[in-house]
């Protein structure tokens, strides 16, 4: 090579590039004091850069950042953490917990299996139960109405069907509103 290195060629050597292309450059640098000096100067600058320290932020920097970060816990992680909260820390406790949880899981599985196998019987029982609850609620409501309004009014409401029930409901709501307004007026007058 009968010329000095180009700046891009010095960069190649500075970056530690290897390969056939850099071999003649290295040979030239060994022979040429000008290029060798230039490369050494460039290396000194790079060394100075590489020795620059990392600067420390103020002591409470991390706390300040974390106070403004929304740490989002996905539901499945939250659920697992809640479960883990129930697990005892001692080995014996964990074994007992495992046995207990296993037994409960086995009983629940058997129960679910039993219900699945007798689904029609379960449906029948649930239907019967719902029927009884409905009858009981209607009887209680009838008794309440008869007691509050008298037998004749109850009979009238019952015979007029849905219309009668609607009129009764509106009348009760209106009475409640009227009573509330009256109470409020009395309270305001007393305060004055």
């Amino acid at each position: 090579m009968d010329r000095h290195l180009l700046p891009s060629e010095i960069d190649l050597l500075l970056d530690g590039e290897v390969g056939f292309g850099t071999s003649p450059l290295k040979t030239h640098v060994r022979k040429c004091p000008t290029c060798s000096g230039e490369l050494e100067e460039a290396r000194a600058t790079v060394r100075a850069l590489e020795h620059l320290p990392h600067l420390a932020p103020p002591p409470l920097f991390a706390e300040r950042v974390l106070s403004r970060v929304n740490i989002f816990v996905p539901w499945h992680v939250a659920a697992l953490d809640t479960l883990r909260g129930f697990v005892p820390s001692s080995r014996g406790g964990r074994v007992a917990f495992g046995v207990g949880a296993g037994s409960l899981a086995a009983v629940m599985s058997v129960l679910v299996l039993w219900i699945a196998l007798r689904f029609d019987a379960v449906l029948f029982a649930v239907g019967m139960l719902a029927d009884r609850v409905r009858t009981g609620l209607l009887d209680a409501a009838g008794t309440f109405l008869a007691g509050a309004l008298g037998d004749s009014a109850y009979t009238l409401v019952r015979s007029s069907g849905l219309f009668g029930l609607a009129v009764l409901t509106v009348a009760l709501v209106a009475a409640a509103l009227l009573a509330a307004t009256l109470l409020r007026t009395i309270a305001v007058h007393r305060r004055r």
């Binding site: 990392h54 420390a56 932020p57 920097f61 989002f72």
Partner: peptide
Amino acid sequence: AQQGREPAYRELLRRYERPVFSLIF
């Protein structure tokens, strides 16, 4: 950190607060 573990957030801050602060400064 994606599981919401606060210590992981702290660790990321510990690792990168100096390089990031230095670059910006």
